[in-house]
Structures are given as structure tokens and as C-alpha cells.
């Protein structure tokens, strides 16, 4: 299990759910980690992820420029490099257009889209100072969503922010490909992360089962496996892509 041996990775939104699964998988594959999240509390419950994994944690807000720059600085300290950034931090309001206030809209955009912009900017600035290793100067994996390609049910700000993440991914890939910086996204379909509330209300679960062709819904580990593939040296000729992990939802 050494597919990320010798690599340093910074993962945002790492305390819970998909980010937590990515942190767990990357650690098992030998990566040196810095976890970032606005809180160490685990949405699905239990001990803080960084304590379980025994890795450093930086409490910060991805929509805050200073926090993001500091996270990248800290992540690169141990090895002088930042090989991988995973942007997983996200919030959602769960409201239709006519129910969404400007303040709510702005907050979602600040975390889900500006947060990815700030982190990509800080990471690429760091990566440009690094030597190319195994055909890459650095790699970014953005967690997007099927929402933004298909409609996000009754959640206009979330879907719009995620569509922006997909575009940002393509633009970074195109602009920094010549510098051997690899930038891809992973688009989860319906993933059961252990989160409660709106995510597992019967009407949304029924809808998701009806729309997911494979016999099961997704797990956080499914997304972590895809992130691992794109973060590893196995994917040195893939960039700008948005890899669906959706049980066939988009093919239907």
C-alpha cells in the first residue's frame, strides 16, 4: 500500500464524510498529510479524524485567504513540497431559488467556489516552485458533484457552485498543463456518508435509488478510491477531467 509514498497531501473538509475517507485512504497509501477543516467535530460522529489517524490538523476556513495560504505553507513544511491538494470542503443550504437569500447564496459561493479558487491559487503558486517528480509538479483533485451537470434538487446555490468547480478545474488544467500541474475533479453521485438529516430523508433516498442504475448507493470510500487514482502516479496523462462516481446516474 504505497501508491502515495513520499507524497505530501493537503485535504480540506477532512474531518467528516468523503474528506475523512480520502484522508484515511491516502494515509494507508503512505502519504504525509495535513488535514484542514473549519471544525474537528465529525458530522457522522465519533473521535476527531486527525486524532484517529494521528496526523496534523489545521483548523481554518477555506473562504478565508489567510487561512488557505497558511494551510499550504504548513503542509509544505515537512518535505518542502506539496504534491497533492484535495478540495473537499463544502456547505449546502438546501433551498430553492425563491427561498434563497443573497446572504445564503454568497456564503455557499464563498466556501464551495471561492474556497476552491483560493486553495488552487495557493497550491499552484507553491507547486510552481517545485521540481517535476514522476511527471508532475503537483496535483489537484477537486470534489465536484453530479449537481451542476444535472439539477441539484431544490438547492440552487449548491448546484451552481459545483458547476463552477468543474469549470475552474478545466481552466487550471489548460493553463498549467505546460508546467506539469495536473488538475482533475471527482463528481460524486448519491453517497451515503453517514450524515443524517436532509441527506437521508426518505424522499431523497427514494429519488436517488430510482435514479441510480447500480443496485446500491455510493460510499465515501468509492470517492476516496477515485481521488486516490487521480492523485497517484497512475494518472499522469489525465487532466482537466471530471470523473463521475455516480453508479451510472449520468449515463441513464
Amino acid at each position: 500500500m504505497t501508491r502515495l509514498a513520499g507524497k505530501t497531501a493537503l485535504i480540506t473538509g477532512a474531518s467528516s464524510g468523503i474528506g475523512r475517507a480520502i484522508a484515511t485512504r491516502f494515509l494507508a497509501e503512505g502519504a504525509t498529510l495535513l488535514l484542514m477543516d473549519i471544525t474537528e467535530a465529525v458530522v457522522e460522529g465519533g473521535e476527531p479524524t486527525h486524532k484517529i489517524l494521528d496526523v496534523p490538523f489545521f483548523q481554518g476556513d477555506v473562504s478565508n485567504e489567510k487561512d488557505v495560504d497558511e494551510a499550504v505553507r504548513r503542509a509544505a513544511l515537512p518535505t518542502g513540497r506539496l504534491d497533492i491538494v484535495v478540495n473537499d470542503a463544502v456547505i449546502r443550504i438546501g433551498k430553492k431559488l425563491t427561498d434563497t437569500s443573497l446572504e445564503e447564496w454568497n456564503r455557499v459561493m464563498a466556501v464551495n467556489l471561492a474556497g476552491v479558487f483560493l486553495m488552487c491559487r495557493a497550491a499552484v503558486r507553491q507547486m510552481l516552485t517545485q521540481e517535476i517528480r514522476h511527471e508532475a509538479r503537483g496535483r489537484i483533485v477537486n470534489i465536484s458533484s453530479q449537481h451542476g451537470m444535472i439539477s441539484s434538487p431544490e438547492d440552487v446555490s449548491y448546484g451552481t457552485s459545483k458547476a463552477g468547480v468543474v469549470y475552474l478545474t478545466r481552466q487550471i488544467a489548460a493553463d498549467y498543463g505546460r508546467d506539469s500541474i495536473i488538475c482533475n475533479a471527482v463528481a460524486p453521485g448519491k453517497i451515503l456518508t453517514g450524515k443524517t438529516g436532509r441527506a437521508v430523508e426518505p424522499r431523497w433516498l427514494d429519488y436517488s435509488h430510482a435514479r441510480t442504475p447500480l443496485p446500491r448507493l455510493g460510499r465515501s470510500e468509492d470517492v476516496a478510491n477515485a481521488a486516490l487514482f487521480l492523485a497517484s502516479d497512475e494518472a499522469t496523462f489525465i487532466t482537466g477531467e471530471n470523473l463521475m462516481v455516480d453508479g451510472g446516474w449520468m449515463a441513464g
Binding site: 498543463g177 446500491r216 468509492d222 496523462f237 463521475m244 462516481v245 455516480d246 451510472g248 449520468m250
Partner: peptide
């Protein structure tokens, strides 16, 4: 195991 119906470019961007 949760990926199906996907089109994956391997094209260097």
C-alpha cells in the same frame, strides 16, 4: 465499483 457509464479521457488535457 460505483463507477459505470463514464467516459474517461486519457489525453493530457
Amino acid at each position: 465499483s460505483f463507477i459505470t457509464g463514464v467516459t474517461l479521457p486519457v489525453d493530457g488535457g
